[in-house]
Nucleic acid binder design. Structure first.
Lengths: 338, 338
DNA sequence: CACCTTTACTAAAGCAGTTAAGATAAAAAT
DNA sequence: ATTTTTATCTTAACTGCTTTAGTAAAGGTG
């Protein structure tokens, strides 16, 4: 197929390239008759302007770059695709392309920084990335960016779109209390500290309100590693007594915990209740299906794009967006009052 | 941060832009001394050449575009992210960017075609897309592309990277036979026909080899819709007798089937065995965990990139790549011989 | 030493658009 | 009728890099 350029179109339509450029961009200064004629030629030839030229001229690439953290443990990657879908949808509405990079624990971002510096994107969206060095680098190079589900320190200079982990934790623990639980363990990550902070505060605040205290042995710091929660439970059960319920900061932890408990013959929820946050797909298929704090995953992505676009267009925006969660009652929590 | 161009570098290093261009691209025609000097200036300034200009000049974008099908039923989207990760890894090795588009059942591809025609990608990777019209369009516009997990008609003019569904089906059914099953149902999709064909042939060939026949009532055509397999089973159980085992062409179907069966009080695998293909994450967490034909998901993505790159570089390649599967024995198949 | 290569380097013409500034003709105002 | 304004259209400069063609100097050869 022949490859038409704006010159070809201009020649065929008998006008200048400027005129063609104007009709392509809907700018004034072209008569209706000429506009029609040019449009017709564009239609007939199937001409589409070269994006690179356009980007070069306008010094904008009309694309956002998504940096996705790739966990080695599958359970942690579960809603990345849904975030991506949300990002894509908003980008589509704005006419932006989306490019993607996966990074792992090595956080080797040289290729990424090069791509950013070469102007292939107008801004970057960090998904589940909590490396402060990486973020400092972006700030230093003055690259517009936004963190989504990234457990980064709250800081007005860092735009964040995050699940409202404090509220989720608080509500989850409150639900356990409503079900009559008084011994409630906390199963959360050692790092990132920001996530631990929000979830732990929600947990302790809820306990305090209920006048409950917690055995320090029931408070854990789990690594983001395969079955780390399971190993914690294996150890716990040999060393001390159990609470009647565990609040887990994520479904992945809850799932590992549940399987470990079942392996030890502890029935869920009869002997131990489990509640968590995330509502990943697996959760509803577990036996028992997990009671968890659910939220709209795509909203995270959509909002991230909104914020990034606001930064680029120098519009007002809230530096911190907290996506609310709601309780999804399934079957991993026993109501002790019944 | 200042934005250096090749002109700045040339000026600072006291050479022409041509010389800088040569050292950037490792071309001959520059003395070692000059090369060093230019390199030093590049280092010092942190200069990265503008990608758009480069792409414009070379008439290549060094990026691949992935078109991902977005199913409305979550269970069908389960390994898209892993395919993406495979694609990304290979692209990274080749120095290619990856851009992404999600399409749904409306298959509205006007935005996509425009993006392709505007030269923002050198080739496209279709993931789980089986729309023949869409593929015809790509062929007609002479856009390099490859189909991955797309259930497209085998045709030397269409590069395909696909799970070896025939082999998987054959092996799965053979496994059921080895476990002593003689009444084996087939639970597969109505469309796409290519997928149905491969899996159905594997199923019937295995049965024939074992000298078995199948009650037509046990052969179904399921839509790719939420819980379609479950509804099929709900209906089946009210109208006719059951086989001792079902071969399902995908884990998602198997999961819906299993849940429906359990709802009707039919124990798996005691009363009904289930085997399928895919090994999505959920499968290992089901009760019982699913016996399924597993394969390396990222390999699909990696191979797709290899093929697309071969097309672009006019290297030899096999039009059809079949990714082999292996049996992953878990607990949804009962051995009747024990 | 004149002649041919080879090497190192540069000027300038692309690539495919955008846009500021200028030209022309028609319409409006004086 | 003349001047001013306005709408329409074009010329040409510009974006930042690649590449062709060309030059000058150094090296090799008979």
């Amino acid at each position: 197929m022949a490859n038409f350029t704006i010159k070809d179109i201009a020649r065929i339509a008998g006008v200048s390239t400027t005129a063609v450029s104007f009709v392509l961009n809907g700018k004034p200064g072209v008569s209706e008759a000429t506009r029609q004629r040019v449009q017709e030629v564009i239609q007939r030839t199937g001409f589409t302007p070269n994006a690179h030229t356009r980007r070069l001229n306008l010094r904008r690439s009309f694309s956002f770059h998504v940096v996705l953290y790739w966990h080695s443990y599958d359970l942690f990657n579960q809603f990345a695709l849904e975030i991506m879908h949300g990002i894509f949808q908003s980008c589509k509405e704005l006419g932006y392309d989306v490019t993607i990079t996966f990074v792992d624990e090595t956080m080797d971002c040289t290729a990424l920084m090069e791509s950013v510096r070469s102007k292939t994107c107008d801004g970057v969206i960090l998904s589940q990335i909590d490396d402060p060095l990486f973020i400092a680098r972006l700030q230093q190079e003055e690259i517009p960016f936004v963190c989504v589900d990234s457990h980064v320190k709250e800081d007005p200079s860092i735009p964040i779109v995050e699940v409202d982990y404090y509220q989720a934790s608080y509500e989850a623990v409150k639900h356990l209390c409503r079900c009559g639980h008084k011994k409630i363990g906390f199963l959360g990550p050692a790092t990132p500290l920001e996530l631990r902070g929000a979830t732990f505060n929600g947990y302790t605040d809820a306990l305090r309100e209920e006048g409950l205290v917690c055995d320090p042995a029931w408070i854990s710091s789990i690594d983001f590693a395969a079955n780390a929660a399971g190993k914690y439970f294996d150890h716990l059960i040999e060393t001390t007594s159990l609470p009647t319920a565990f609040f887990c900061t994520g479904d992945a932890f809850a799932i590992d915990l549940l399987r470990s408990a079942q392996k030890h013959g502890i029935q869920i929820p009869e002997k131990l209740s489990v509640i968590s946050i995330d509502d990943i797909l697996v959760s509803q298929f577990m036996t028992p299906p997990l009671t968890t704090m659910t939220f709209h995953k795509e909203a995270l992505g959509r909002r991230a794009v909104e914020v990034l676009y606001a930064i680029l267009t120098e519009t007002e925006y809230d530096a911190v967006t907290l996506i609310p969660t709601t309780l999804c009652e399934r079957n991993s929590v026993k109501d002790l009052k019944i």
